[in-house]
Design a protein around this nucleic acid. Structure first.
Lengths: 147, 147
DNA sequence: ATAATTGCAAACACTTTGCACCTGT
DNA sequence: ACAGGTGCAAAGTGTTTGCAATTAT
């Protein structure tokens, strides 16, 4: 209870399956993937579905992977690395293509400060995701519209 | 495809069940509830589970109710009314008590503008929810900590 | 009368879990 | 050797759907 997380080193095995899972996540670090995509990609490599879920959960817990919820309730995962700085900035997710954008933008820090001061609300930047439409998709949408 | 939504009047029946569902949602307009809470509350009133889900889906579609995804993937609903202005502002959700706060804060409009200009990303304020911890919960947490 | 709605139970999609077997240390 | 990990299939969630009966118009 009073134990800080992150101190359970030494008790984990380095397995072929985990290596593969992290490898895939890193390869797709610029976007997020569903557990199922991962399972699919690793089907041939002999990695079971539950192993994927278990690994993801663990990675999320230790902060190496971020989990997002799509509008339909399904989960998406994205590698962020052990990189602590990732907790410092906000994330933008395109509702259309699902791509995720990191932004270190100071404006968002000001936002946090403002919300804290004027709304008495401590923003959790690691939990918050800003949704919208990215440039490419906005263009694509514009085309469809006038089609 | 080119039809604007909101024009399907006249084809819907006004039923006892739907009245009850909306009634409950309005009674809890300052917070959000899960479909299950609703089902539970209306069990005695003779409202079936599927009716609740169907009603919620319809209400979300027509914008009277907002749906959020909790961290565990489950959905939460909250009445926002036909009120269009609700699409204009951001929402803050407390990760601890689940209460939702509306804010009309101009700072957030600036944020949208900034993100559009500097990050080429069109923020969708109706989809975005800012997560964090509200004042009360922050206090409660502080107490627990030093307990 | 008849089109929409309801409730039930079965179907679903996604995720978790129990357990016997396998692997890393 | 043995703690920890894996795969399978079974069990859970929360949500959706098919259909006959019911209700609003």
């Amino acid at each position: 209870m009073s134990e800080r997380s992150g101190g359970n080193r030494g008790s984990e095995y380095r397995t072929r399956q985990r290596e593969l899972i992290i490898e895939r996540l890193i390869a797709a670090r610029d976007r997020h993937m569903t557990a199922d995509e991962l399972v699919e990609q690793l089907r041939g490599e002999g990695v079971g579905r539950s192993t994927v879920y278990r690994a993801l959960e663990r990675l999320v817990e230790r902060g190496e992977v971020r989990r997002y919820r799509l509008d339909d309730g399904g989960a998406c995962y994205q590698y962020t690395g052990g990189d602590e700085s990732c907790h410092e900035h906000h994330h933008l997710v395109c509702l259309r293509c699902g791509r995720l954008f990191h932004t270190e933008c100071g404006f968002l820090d000001e936002l946090s400060a403002h919300i804290m001061k004027d709304h008495k609300f401590r923003l959790d930047t690691s939990r918050t995701v800003l949704y919208g439409v990215c440039e490419k998709c906005a263009e694509a949408e514009a085309e469809e519209e006038q089609k």
